[in-house]
């Protein structure tokens, strides 16, 4: 299917989601309120961390703040775009609701992923950009258009990688009945990688968080690029890993569909 048509459908799904949110006025404004509050709590937590830590693993305060801003941005974009759609997949596999998605002439994975975009996460996106601007201003570094484009490109690639990881874990219920414990593990790993830059991982942990569960590179690589510390090998590696995981995700999803048992009516 052409990308423009795919984007058009994603745009329609966004419009539908907006309309659905507006159908319940309290829910629509409530989302802004709840997610906005969560962001404030996050800011408080960041401030506490930075009042205690000056430098970690060679990263100064601004770089560290930029790292957290980057993770926050990736996470907020994830929440805005596909998180709520992706987390609904295991339930739809178990209940057989997936049937109707499979029979539509669009990519069923995209349809599922983008039908529950969360408008309430948009303030988090803007706030994350605010953190990034603030952190960048403290870096005393000349920022060029190329730096911004390269950073945005890497954030996009890491967003794709984040998506891949979420989908892979939620494709497992095609093969086993209960996979919720894996989702809990995912939550723990994300929390860890949100707080610790990937550069701090060594040995087996580096292997684990750079290759097996590559959450460790998601915010680290764009931050390193922006700070000018990313090597060419690191740049190419992060792109390749995102491409490899994307290819695996689609193949795994396709295999999952082949094994789909639906549910009795």
């Amino acid at each position: 299917m052409r990308i423009t048509r795919q984007l058009k459908i994603i745009y329609m799904l966004l419009k539908m989601k907006l309309s659905r949110n507006m159908a319940f006025r309290f829910s629509f404004f409530g989302v802004f309120f709840v997610d906005g509050s969560l962001f404030l709590i996050q800011l408080l937590m960041f401030s506490t961390i930075y009042s205690q830590v000056g430098s970690i693993g060679g990263w100064d305060r601004s770089q560290m703040l930029f790292f957290i801003g980057t993770f926050s941005l990736i996470n907020a974009l994830n929440m805005f775009l596909y998180f709520f759609g992706v987390i609904s997949i295991p339930g739809k596999i178990k209940s057989g609701e997936l049937d109707l998605y499979i029979t539509k002439p669009v990519n069923s994975l995209f349809h599922l992923s983008f039908e529950s975009m969360d408008i309430g996460s948009l303030p988090l996106v803007f706030a994350s950009i605010g953190i990034l601007v603030y952190a960048a201003s403290g870096m005393h570094k000349q920022i060029t258009i190329l730096t911004i484009i390269g950073y945005a490109f890497l954030v996009f690639m890491m967003l794709v990688l984040y998506y891949d990881m979420e989908v892979i874990l939620r494709t497992i219920p095609f093969f086993v009945i209960q996979a919720s414990s894996i989702e809990r593990l995912e939550g723990e790993v994300i929390t860890l990688c949100m707080k610790i830059p990937g550069t701090l991982f060594k040995g087996a942990f580096k292997f684990l968080f750079y290759l097996v569960l590559p959450y460790g590179i998601m915010a680290t690589v764009p931050t390193q690029f922006f700070a000018g510390t990313l090597t060419l090998v690191g740049f190419v590696y992060s792109i390749l890993i995102a491409i490899a995981f994307t290819a695996f995700t689609f193949a795994f999803w396709k295999l999952g569909l082949k094994c789909y048992k639906s549910a009795s009516s």
Binding site: K8, I9, G96, L100, T103, S265
Partner: peptide, 26 residues
Amino acid sequence: SIVMGQKSQLFQDLSAADTFLLLKEI
């Protein structure tokens, strides 16, 4: 097309006309 009596393809919180518009695109 498939219609399953116990599964709905309509968005419950919106009007049927809204779902029809989405299907037009799909």
